[in-house]
């Protein structure tokens, strides 16, 4: 079935009308979600993920406290309706646990955990819709949620998936493409160009690897622009509302006293 669909047609278009290196639209919402310290909703095309960050806070279990740094706890839940075939996954699903530990190990070197000794940072990822590139959406969403929570990080982490169709590399794969072509996910810290994560679920030819890898690192800086714009936009909105209401009222208090 999948083989009947052209991954890349002769005109150089993919099944959803994109070019080889074109990314899907990225939508970011950094509004406050409930009681979370930081939260972000990110959509890469049809993949929607909601990430909430709680902490740094006192660890709920004594065994989780470390005297010199913070403990990072990642929990993922996939909505039953998020995929084409409706299926409920249990919390203890091996695939989900592995996914969570991947995210944890991606962020452990990036978050300045030594600033928060004896604390715990909880990251809750809720997958609302999936259409390929789930890991990249989770990582990008977590980066944004951590930043909105005011947690110290060395840099943004920008993740992107890439694959290769016969000899032509593709970026930001949909579910359809992910099922059909060898693919990998790369997470980079754009400032230093350090790679925080690289995973491959499928076999990829070694000669194709470097090309995709370079493209993915480059795409990371494109995603960074989007994420930075969202973070700065949120910051200036909040600061503006704080400033606009304090200045006049602050003066009012002064006048009352004098």
């Amino acid at each position: 079935m999948a083989s009947r669909i052209e991954i890349l047609n002769e005109g150089g278009f993919r099944s959803d009308g994109r070019r080889q290196f074109e990314l899907r639209t990225i939508e970011i919402d950094l509004a406050q979600q409930g009681q979370a310290d930081g939260s972000a909703v990110i959509a890469h095309g049809l993949t929607h993920v909601l990430v909430s960050v709680f902490g740094p806070r006192e660890a709920r279990m004594r065994s989780h406290t470390m005297h010199d740094r913070a403990n990072i706890n990642v929990e993922i839940s996939l909505a039953a309706f998020s995929t084409g075939d409706r299926r409920k996954r249990s919390r203890g699903d091996k695939r989900i646990l592995e996914f969570a530990s991947t995210i944890k190990s991606t962020f452990e070197p990036v978050i300045q955990t030594t600033l928060y000794p004896r604390s715990q940072i909880d990251i809750f990822v809720q997958v609302v819709q999936q259409d390929g590139g789930l890991l990249q959406a989770c990582i990008n969403g977590t980066t944004l949620a951590l930043i909105t929570a005011g947690i110290a990080m060395l840099d943004f982490v920008c993740a992107i998936s890439g694959g290769v169709h016969s000899t032509s590399p593709l970026l930001d794969l949909t579910n359809l493409e992910e099922n059909d072509v060898p693919n990998m996910t790369v997470a980079v810290m754009p400032k230093t160009q350090k790679v925080s994560l690289l995973t491959m679920d499928t076999r990829l030819h070694v000669e194709r690897f470097e090309e995709i890898f370079r493209l993915a690192v480059e795409a990371g800086s494109t995603i960074l622009v989007e994420m930075k714009a969202a973070v700065l936009g949120r910051s200036s909105r909040l600061i503006e509302s704080v400033d606009s209401s304090t200045q006049p009222h602050g003066l009012g208090v002064e006048n009352d006293n004098s």
Partner: peptide
């Protein structure tokens, strides 16, 4: 949007990680 954000970020001295 980018332009607006950059302008407003300058007036308030905003920054982000990295």
């Amino acid at each position: 949007d980018d332009l607006e954000n950059i302008q407003s970020s300058h007036s308030y001295n905003l920054t982000c990680p990295g």
